[in-house]
Every structure is written in structure tokens, then in C-alpha cells.
């Protein structure tokens, strides 16, 4: 796998021998992985392979039992989720986690939280600064909603959106934190083939438009083959292969792991 020095890293995200143990079970074991700026990387594997656990490790939900995680040149082991987000990493969830009783626009405005500069007294006394920043945030949020074709739902409650729109809103919300790296956890789950195809094109477009690196989880291999530059394959917590889609397609272990499923 990677051959860099163990403490210095040039990559945007770098996992070095990362493991996590839950009561004797190694959910993620000795994983090495890196992502460079502007890359679109896939993380695949059968159900229960540890993909979401890997996401949770990267985003600070879990703390690795062993190994180190570097983001943007800094070690982020043990950093809390919100700190990791503040460093420029955003994510979506496999089971959508919107602020469902709040309007769509507020979902996005909340994500601009860390760009707000006014302090509590300025908010209470509603100074010029408060109004300037609030207007600014509202405007930016509307722009994002437009990109995701959600602008006419801006004042609807998030829970009342159709399923596909909820998935889009979650991505819009993640982008509002202005990340360098975006992690998408099965964004195509529950979508039909046509929607999935559109989504994959959109993901590629997002990377170019927002100058992002994107890490994408999918359990369906064929999906990521077309869109990702490199792919990591997890099975039982182990990284069993990584490489270009072509290399993965012909990798023996991957074929075994997916035995019974067609590898396109």
C-alpha cells in the first residue's frame, strides 16, 4: 500500500494502519488509505464490511483503537466531529439525518454556522453586523438550494420533502460547511437506476464546481466503477484491494468477496 513516512503526509486525508475494536470485534482492521485534493475515491465492500465504521472513524464519531488519521496535514485522532467539520470535512449519512421539523432553508443556514462572526450580544441587540451576516447566509443558502433544485421548497419542512430531495438536501447541507473533503455514505441508496445515474453525474460535477475531494461509499460496485478514479475495497474490516476501477474489476480477491454478484 502507501509507502510514505509514518508521521509526515502530503495527502489531504491519510489513514495509517487504522483499527477499531468493539468488544473483541475488529470492525476496521489495519486500514491504510489516502485521498488527494480533487480526487473522487470509492470505498466499496459487501454489507457489514466496515465502510460506515471507517466513515465514523474519519469524521470523529469513533476514536481509532490503533493507527493515525491525518487530515490536511494534522493528526485528527480523538478530535470531535464538530472539530473535524471545522477543519473542512463534511459528510452525509446512510440513514438520512436532516433537521426534519425545520424548514429546508434553515437546514442549510445551520450548516453555515461556523462562518457566522457575530457574537451573542450582537445577536440579541441585532446590530448591523447581525443583519449583514444573516442576509449573507440566507443568500448563500438560497444559491445552494438552487443548485440542488430545492429553491421552491425553501420554506417547506424538511420532513415533507420527497425521498430523493431529502438526499439532495443532505448533500447541499454538507456543502454549506464549505468542505475540502466530502464524504457520501451510500448516497444512491433507495434510488432507481435513472436517479442513480443522475446522482453520479452530479457528484462528478460537484467535485469540479466546488473544488472538492470526494469519498463515496457504495456497496454496489458497478455504480462507483464509472465515476471514481481509485477504489478501496473492504471486507470484514480489512482493506483487501485498492486501485483503479480496471484493476479492481480484475482483482481475484474482490471477485471472491463479491462471489455470486456480477462484477461489471
Amino acid at each position: 500500500m502507501t509507502t510514505e513516512a509514518k508521521t509526515e503526509t502530503r495527502h489531504l486525508l491519510d489513514l495509517q494502519n487504522v483499527s477499531i475494536v468493539f468488544g473483541g470485534l475488529r470492525a476496521v482492521s489495519n486500514v491504510n488509505m489516502y485521498i488527494d485534493e480533487h480526487e473522487l475515491i470509492g470505498l466499496i465492500g459487501p454489507n457489514g464490511a466496515g465502510k460506515t465504521t471507517a466513515f465514523n472513524l474519519i469524521t470523529g464519531v469513533y476514536v481509532p483503537t490503533e493507527g493515525d488519521i491525518y487530515f490536511d496535514g494534522k493528526r485528527i485522532n480523538g478530535k470531535k466531529s464538530y472539530q473535524v467539520t471545522q477543519m473542512g470535512m463534511a459528510r452525509t449519512f446512510q440513514n438520512i439525518r436532516l433537521f426534519s421539523e425545520l424548514p429546508v432553508i434553515d437546514n442549510v443556514k445551520i450548516a453555515y454556522h461556523m462562518h457566522i462572526q457575530y457574537n451573542l450580544p450582537e445577536a440579541i441587540f441585532r446590530t448591523k453586523k447581525y443583519f449583514r451576516e444573516e442576509d449573507d447566509v440566507t443568500e448563500k443558502a438560497m444559491e445552494l438550494l438552487k443548485i440542488f433544485h430545492l429553491e421552491e421548497h425553501a420554506n417547506d419542512l424538511a420532513k415533507n420533502l420527497p425521498y430523493g430531495a431529502q438526499r439532495r438536501l443532505e448533500i447541499a447541507r454538507a456543502l454549506a460547511t464549505e468542505p475540502k473533503l466530502l464524504l457520501l455514505d451510500e448516497p444512491a441508496a433507495g434510488m432507481n437506476p435513472q436517479e442513480t445515474k443522475e446522482l453520479m453525474e452530479m457528484i462528478r460535477w460537484l467535485r469540479d464546481h466546488f473544488h472538492l475531494a470526494i469519498l463515496l461509499i457504495e456497496h454496489d460496485m458497478s455504480l462507483v466503477m464509472g465515476v471514481c478514479q481509485r477504489i478501496y475495497v473492504l471486507e470484514y474490516g480489512l482493506c483487501i484491494a485498492n486501485g483503479t476501477p480496471d484493476e479492481i474489476r480484475h482483482n481475484k480477491r474482490v471477485i471472491e468477496a463479491y462471489l455470486g454478484e456480477e462484477v461489471s
Binding site: 469524521t59 470531535k80 464538530y82 426534519s100 454556522h113 460547511t177
Partner: peptide
């Protein structure tokens, strides 16, 4: 609404 999501929005919950 959702503490985990709030956390990942950069909010120190």
C-alpha cells in the same frame, strides 16, 4: 432535531 447531524455541521453541541 438531530444531535449527531448538528455535530457534523461543525456545531459544538
Amino acid at each position: 432535531e438531530n444531535e449527531i447531524a448538528a455535530d457534523t455541521m461543525g456545531i459544538d453541541t
